[in-house]
Design a protein around this nucleic acid. Sequence first.
RNA 1: GGAGAGAUGACCGAGCGGCCGAAGGUGCUCGCCUGCUAAGCGAGUGUGGGGUGUAGAGUCCCACCGAGGGUUCGAAUCCCUCUCUCUCCGCCA
Length: 426
Amino acid sequence: MLDIAFIRNNPEVVKEGARKKRMKVDIDELLSVDNDMRRLKTEVETLRADRNRISKDVSKSSGPERDDLIQQIKFIKNGLTEKEPKLKELEERFEQLMLFVPNPPLPEAPEGDSEEDNVLIRKVGQVPQFDFTPKDHLELAESLDMVDMPRAVKFAGARMYFLKNEGALLEFALFKFALDHLASKGFQPMIVPQLVRREAMVGTGFFPLGEEDTFFVSKDDLYLVGTAEVSLVSYHMDEILSESELPKRYCGYSTCFRREAGSYGRDTKGFYRLHQFNKVEQVVICENDPEVSMREHKLLLENAEEIMQALGLPYRVALACTGEIGQGQVLKHEIETWMPSRGKYSETHSCSSLHEFQSRRLRIRYRGADGKVKPCHTLNNTAVASPRIMIPILENFQNADGSVTIPEVLRPLMRGMERIEPKNSK
RNA sequence: GGAGAGAUGACCGAGCGGCCGAAGGUGCUCGCCUGCUAAGCGAGUGUGGGGUGUAGAGUCCCACCGAGGGUUCGAAUCCCUCUCUCUCCGCCA
């Protein structure tokens, strides 16, 4: 959500932002509703002021004078009964329109339509050269008996899976490693609610646009989160924090549920696109200062890169183009990891700054040193998401004999195992 | 799931249908005072929105005492619905 005053004063900036993001939104309609709403509001408030004033006199009067005052109020109330529903209608329309206005991207976000227009920032690590025919991650995972997809699909449907044996252990090791790393840097570890109310989904900006992609538990009116970001950001909903306690830095673990509506037939094989996965997410809530949030943005990116480097995975960092940036984000970096079977770097992390977009929706504010209450800035980035991260781990670290070498940092977390060996029986 | 109690400002907590945007305290800000610290003294300090005003300051108004309806000239106070919290019982990782 943007500040309506900002939209009023800078309609062209907002329109240009929407255009860059390739999003359709009718700012002129919004402003016209805003205008009508304010005009009517003034009328209604004048009537209310009259009513309140006269009503106070009622208590001081008596007899015919009193009856006369009450008559006057009844007359005013007629005007109110006529105007109030119209005002309410306009206000609802206004709120609705506001939910769709995209946050204009920062100037440093490159303009573009799709992934191809993202700008490469840096490459880290060596892409492996195999002197044997490498397998893809699914083949590896099956031969290593780390996964069972067919049995899951049989009773749970497409894009479902079991992780088993070293697969299960590896995932826990990854999350433990990530949480430890972030906790050591002062991020507060959290295990978060995975079922949330609509308010949290709208508040974090996933709704209304992302509603189709979300699982809904209708009996209880609760939504399954697609990321811990929803809960971590909503944590401070409706609060006024003090500047001295900022920034708030969190790392949260959750399972993530995504319907993947509209992606039928895409990435159907393997670990890339699943209905359910697990993730450690980083979230920062900080002061309303673009420089501060940019610093935090870099910190979040750096944390994720440190984890990637510790794992020894070859990756690159790209700056997402405007067409790839979500509605609420002003800047987004992606970490893409080398996946041999795809023959390219593919997204494993997404680092976003949202400025006031979420905090306005959720009313997360803080009292500045000047005594003024301001909306915070919010940011988030993946720390590690699995099983997707297992694609590059399995594929990059595979050996000629079909085994996979476990990254050193994870070995202490996997009972000292150094390799995952192929199994014969299933 | 059954029975009962509750939801008030950044936080805690009082509140008779008009004198309540709301006592008191804590916190915070500013000042004073005291070898230092702690304490003490004084003053200030709600949110959101609309109008006016040169962004500002100021000023006027509206709304808000969990949310939404209702009664009333007038509702934090009365009634209804919902949500959440707590206690007890049941069930349960």
